[in-house]
């Protein structure tokens, strides 16, 4: 399901016109946020302190990441260990298979723990790649405008009008299966939203005083884009990124439903839910438990995203 709240938000801000406080027009006092590297990030983290939701979300994400990283030490079994003698063992807390086993007798808890690796990677990588491509092109198009911008805009219109799932199915068929191809297929269109958002934001920032000032100081276009404009637009992009991450993980399960997911030897939650759906009538846990793992992570990502929005949004900061 495509959620486009952020894009809409920026649309809406523009629509409210220049007489209200928006990101588009430089608001006195916050007109320029320069790069500050790590301090910037830690500053944001510090401000998140007042958002209990974001803190809980952050800890949940941390727990997932720890699970993913130390999977071999945490998981009680190997995720691919086939044990045909004990297929469909129901979950019993405290037993050898606390969350039960699947159709091949594999331990579901271990698969969920290992599955965190793929699912988190799918989310992080697709969003990161889409973001880099989209923001990069968006900066150039928004800053220079002109014919490049026109061509890109037509091209992205075209991509947006092309149904996403059809695009991904086709791309997977062309590329063949495999983890990296999956990432690539998901990125094919994922960047467009980031492109749109960053382009619009750049265009609104371009005329602002600090950019004029930098230009007057004789800074190069590249330097202005990277060190002047980017820090000012990165926040809304980050927020869109956190929202997209959950979508991408769910998308993997849709592809798996259509038989185009990651290879079965690499456990991924999406594929686990989609394979397990066949056994909903006789073994509900096979599909439901990995699904819950997914829900909790997406929830956590979104809570952090929500917190980030509150912290980074200058309008709310003023209140």
């Amino acid at each position: 399901m495509s959620v486009n709240a952020e894009h809409v938000d920026s649309l809406k801000r523009r629509s409210l016109g220049s007489d209200t406080y928006t990101l588009d027009t430089p608001v006195p006092g916050i007109s320029r946020r320069p790069w500050s590297g790590f301090r910037n990030i830690s500053g944001i983290l510090f401000k998140l302190k007042n958002h209990p939701g974001a803190i809980v979300g952050g800890f949940v994400i941390l727990a997932y990441v720890i699970c993913a990283v130390f999977a071999p030490y945490i998981a009680p079994h190997s995720p691919g260990e086939v044990a045909l003698a004990k297929r469909f063992v129901p979950p019993v807390i405290g037993s050898i298979n606390p969350l039960g086993t699947d159709q091949l007798g594999r331990d579901i808890l271990s698969r969920i723990i290992y599955g965190a690796r793929v699912s988190i990677l799918v989310g992080v990588l697709t969003v990161a790649i889409s973001m880099v491509i989209g923001v990069g092109l968006g900066l150039i198009a928004g800053y220079y405008q002109g014919s490049f911008d026109k061509i890109m805009s037509r091209f992205t219109d075209l991509l947006l009008a092309f149904p996403y799932l059809i695009f991904v199915i086709g791309a997977m068929s062309v590329l063949g299966p495999g983890f990296w191809n999956l990432i690539l297929a998901l990125c094919f269109k994922g960047w467009v939203e980031f492109y749109r958002l960053s382009r619009a934001e750049v265009m609104s920032q371009k005329a602002s005083e600090y950019v004029e000032a930098a230009r007057a100081l004789g800074r190069t276009d590249g330097a202005i884009m990277i060190s002047e404009i980017l820090p000012n637009i990165i926040h809304s992009i980050l927020v869109l990124g956190t929202l997209r991450m959950g979508n991408m993980i769910v998308m993997e399960s849709s592809l798996s439903f259509l038989g185009l997911g990651v290879p079965p030897s690499i456990p991924a939650w999406g594929s686990m839910v989609s394979d397990g759906r066949r056994y909903m009538l006789n073994a509900w846990w096979v599909a439901t438990l990995p699904g819950l793992a997914l829900v909790v992570l997406v929830l956590a990502i979104n809570l952090v995203g929500e917190g980030l929005r509150d912290v980074l949004d200058p309008r709310l900061k003023e209140n």
């Binding site: 399901m1 959620v3 959950g246 979508n247 993980i249 769910v250 399960s253 849709s254 439903f257 999406g270 839910v273 989609s274 759906r277 909903m280 009538l281 599909a287 439901t288 699904g291 997914l294 829900v295 992570l297 997406v298 929830l299 979104n302």
Partner: peptide, 21 residues
């Protein structure tokens, strides 16, 4: 809001099969 996250992050086919059952 928590329910709404559930709506976003559960794959449609899972929700559908639960509904049928």
């Amino acid at each position: 809001m928590a329910t709404s996250f559930l709506g976003i992050s559960m794959p449609g086919f899972w929700l559908g099969i639960i509904g049928i059952i």
